[in-house]
Amino acid sequence: MAKTVNKELAQFISDRFNEIMKTTGLELEVFAAYSKIGYSTFRTYHSRTVRISVETLKKICDTYQISLTDFFNPDKPLVVNPPVIKHVQEFQIKYLHNKNKLLKDEGIKFAAKPTGAGNKWEREMIKYIVLHTDYFNTSRSIAEMAIDFAKDFELVLESGRIYELLRKYVDHEIKREKSTRINHDHSTSNRMIFLYNKA
């Protein structure tokens, strides 16, 4: 099985990979996933620490619809067809979304509920509730939070303190939206309130 036999060729192949990634906008890990090659294996090819077989190289070229002849022609810039670029970029969005979801799910699974008291504990509890529970999957008002936090998390806070903690410590993790307040008699109030949920 033919493999790269010198440093100059290995560098050329690595540079061509970079050219494809630049054209498609793919990150290294996603490039490997889209090419159906393990990330750690591809990384060794890209960093020139392990020689790549011609068969593997052809598999990568076929994935991006590039001929081996064009790949090895140093005078020819690599061209990736627009439909392929569109497809790989859609793949990257889905891949990174699934990866982030997996990381978040793992974080929820293994995060320990903070213990203690005082200001630091309050900060840690707010982060725990936002990042490691599903509480904010439903939109909540600060008035609802004050009741729920005390009941479900033994976190007794005034409305102003809740607002301060949300703004200072988890502002990028949640979003705030204006909403119409509903009175006890189910009529619509003229007063607007803010509802918070996961960003």
Rank of each mutant, 00 (worst) to 15 (best):
K7F: 05
S141C: 04
I142W: 03
V156D: 09
K127C: 05
T49D: 13
I108N: 05
T56C: 03
H184L: 08
Q65C: 04
R48Y: 08
T24D: 02
N119Q: 10
E19W: 13
I142N: 04
I52E: 03
F91W: 09
T44D: 13
T4E: 05
S47A: 11
Q65K: 12
V79L: 10
L9V: 13
E158H: 11
I66H: 00
D62E: 08
I147P: 07
Y64N: 06
V170N: 06
G25H: 04
T133C: 08
A32H: 06
S40P: 02
H186D: 09
Q11K: 15
S53D: 01
T180N: 12
Q92N: 05
D148T: 07
L103E: 14
T24M: 00
F72G: 00
K127N: 04
N73V: 00
I20C: 03
L68Q: 06
K109D: 06
K120F: 09
R16I: 01
T56E: 14
E177C: 15
E29L: 14
D171Q: 08
I126T: 14
Q92M: 14
Y128W: 05
T41L: 10
N100A: 15
F31I: 10
I182Y: 05
Y128H: 04
L26V: 05
K101L: 15
S159R: 12
K101N: 13
S139Y: 11
K76V: 14
S53E: 10
V50Q: 00
L157Y: 09
E144K: 13
D105A: 15
K59H: 12
Y163W: 07
A146H: 01
H97A: 14
D171N: 12
N98Y: 11
Y135P: 00
T69G: 07
M125K: 01
V50M: 06
V5H: 11
L96F: 06
M1D: 04
E29G: 10
C61W: 02
D148L: 15
F31G: 01
F194Y: 15
H132A: 03
L165F: 01
S187D: 02
S35T: 09
Y128A: 01
Q92T: 07
L78M: 09
A146I: 07
A112S: 10
R123D: 00
A143W: 02
F194P: 01
L102F: 12
S187E: 07
K58S: 06
E19D: 11
